[in-house]
């Protein structure tokens, strides 16, 4: 019975993937991709990975969907010829087919090999979990055992936002009011925003003992910011480049600061004192949540101003 559910999910997944790549309309293609993100979050549940399921639902289906749809609206004016799928005479088709099947065969062969765990890292995690300051293993791995990964990940996010910033028009200020000047929407959002914010903070708080954490909370926060922007409740903060940048650096700065304090006592970078590990992790996570939310929102905002030339041409 369980296998049946799994196989159905896989069939839907592969079907949606094929549809999202090969439908004629680009809009449908994006829609199928968003759907695929939602199905994928169910798959993560079946894989016993509720943390990833939460992140996939908020990021894969939510934020990526918003970004793609927004880009799609601005790419309308470009020459968009629907793909000719079965161009059997084109060498490109055969190259693609060959590479696709090659990848499937090679990976399939690799997956079918029986796997023998050489180093039982998961045992080390459960042995040291008590010292990490949190009781949820994934949060312990992300913010204690492998905190370098997370630190560099936030640095990558800041880098992406900085690159996006260099591509925007300096003399351009996107006007928010043109989007959805709807009174009802404004009123609803004012009611919804505290709830979304609360969900985000709950995810953050829950992360120390159960599935949840800074990434999921940040993604939810970003969606709240995007909603704010879409109904035209534009804050002055988003206009001001300095505030924009400070928001990005905030999480990284807290992380580096907390990581650097042990250096004064002659201990390695990013060692938390055992007694305060839980509080420090929560502090870092709070900074990360705010920064991740702000960076994802900024990327959305900056991708809008990257295509300003387009706006003048399209009515």
């Amino acid at each position: 019975m369980n296998e049946l559910i799994d196989l159905t999910l896989i069939c839907i997944l592969l079907g949606l993937a094929t549809l999202s790549l090969f439908t004629q309309s680009l809009f449908r293609s994006v829609m199928f991709f968003i759907l695929l993100g939602l199905i994928l979050s169910l798959v993560w549940i079946r894989l016993d990975a509720p943390d990833i399921a939460l992140a996939e639902a908020a990021i894969g289906a939510g934020i990526t969907g918003i970004l793609l749809l927004d880009a799609l609206a601005h790419l309308r004016a470009t020459s968009n010829t629907p793909p000719q799928l079965l161009q059997l005479k084109q060498p490109r088709f055969w190259l693609a087919l060959l590479s696709g099947t090659g990848v499937i065969l090679a990976l399939g062969l690799a997956v079918s090999e029986p796997l023998s765990p050489v180093v039982a890292l998961d045992l080390k995690v459960s042995e040291n979990l008590a010292e990490s300051g949190v009781t949820h293993p994934i949060t312990a791995i992300l913010l204690n055992f492998r905190s370098y990964d997370t630190l560099l990940e936030v640095a990558v996010l800041v880098l992406a936002a900085l690159v996006a910033l260099t591509l925007r028009q300096s003399d351009e200020h996107p006007v928010a009011n043109e989007f959805l000047p709807n009174q009802l929407l404004h009123a609803c959002l004012k009611l919804f925003f505290p709830m979304i914010f609360l969900v985000s903070m709950y995810l953050l708080w829950a992360g120390s003992t159960q599935p949840g954490g800074a990434f999921q909370a940040g993604a939810v926060l970003a969606s709240a910011f995007v909603l704010f922007y879409l109904v035209g409740l534009k804050t002055q903060l988003a206009q001001n480049e300095h505030y924009l940048k400070r928001g990005w650096i905030f999480g990284l700065a807290i992380f580096v600061l907390v990581g650097a304090v042990p250096l004064l006592q002659g201990q390695p970078f990013l060692t938390y004192p055992d007694a305060h590990a839980g509080v420090l992790i929560l502090l870092i996570e709070l900074g990360l949540t705010l920064s991740i939310g702000w960076i994802l929102f900024s990327l959305f905002l900056l991708s809008q101003s990257a295509s300003t030339f387009q706006k003048k041409d399209t009515p």
Partner: peptide, 17 residues
Amino acid sequence: QALVLTGIVVAVAATAL
């Protein structure tokens, strides 16, 4: 799982960029 969680966030940043 933790690695994939990091990967998803980096992937969305890469997509946005």
